[in-house]
Amino acid sequence: MLGKLLKHEWKAVWKVPMLLIGILMIMAMVAGFTFVLPVWDSEWVGLPLSGVMLIMLFYFTIIAVSIGITIYFAVRYYKNMFTDEGYLTHTLPVSARQLLLNKVITMSAWNLIAIVAVGLSLLLFGGITLWALMPKDSSFAREVIESFAEAIEGWPEALSSPYMKGFTGFCISLLLMVLSGSFSGTMMIVGSINLGQMVRKHRILGSIGAYFAINAVIQMFNMMVMMPVMFGVENSVSRWEGDMSPFPMFTRFYMIMTVITLAAAVGLYFMSEYLLRRQLELE
């Protein structure tokens, strides 16, 4: 049944986030193509300013799309589970666990897609900018390309140097943080909405309040755990030597953050499942 739920959920949701991602890509191209326009050399300040504004607009679109996708899925979760639509959702012959897993998997996957899309839009912007600048200032563009080529060529050697020690571990920890972040971000939303339902008369307000409360608790816990680590870092920095690699320190940071947010997300998942199974009250 989970497979069927996922199939219908995916079919129902893909249009809105894809539209938002499409807008993001268009804005990346528009911002990149501003470098083709002859606005930058204009003596009238308005023209280069409008170019800057377009690039800024791309920046704001990244934020708007990330927030937009999150809000879209939060509203959809609330509507599907706790409004009139819940009368269909909760009368399907599936368990509360399957209902929840369906939502969590879909939302986490779209969180990841959004992160990848933001990365791609930045690459698109960078690529178009480089392409646009090439005819104007070929030496600059050539330098950038050559630097890239050199970096790739010298990569194996650079990796074996002492100041790159632990780089692979750092990359893995970063990847783990992004992956767990997609899940924990989803659970923050889902957990808050489920908890908000306990405030029967003000469910939406309850959900918003729960979101900030959960966030505050996680931040506080993060701070408590990070404090001793920070002291450790301070000691390391005071004993810093030129050939020391910074990556193991960052790896430790990221791993601790990942474990904390993952633990909170797992806790929120089980709380949500319990609330859906034992405390469901549709209006």
Binding site: A12, E85, Y87, T91, L92, P93, V94, S95
Partner: peptide, 26 residues
């Protein structure tokens, strides 16, 4: 009440409960 009972109960609530964006064929 659970998945087993829901598979044999057909329920019509007193409100419109289908997603408005859906087609009847869907």
């Amino acid at each position: 009440p659970g998945p087993e009972s829901k598979s044999c109960v057909s329920y019509l609530p007193e409100r419109t409960y289908f997603q408005n964006s859906m087609k009847i064929s869907e």
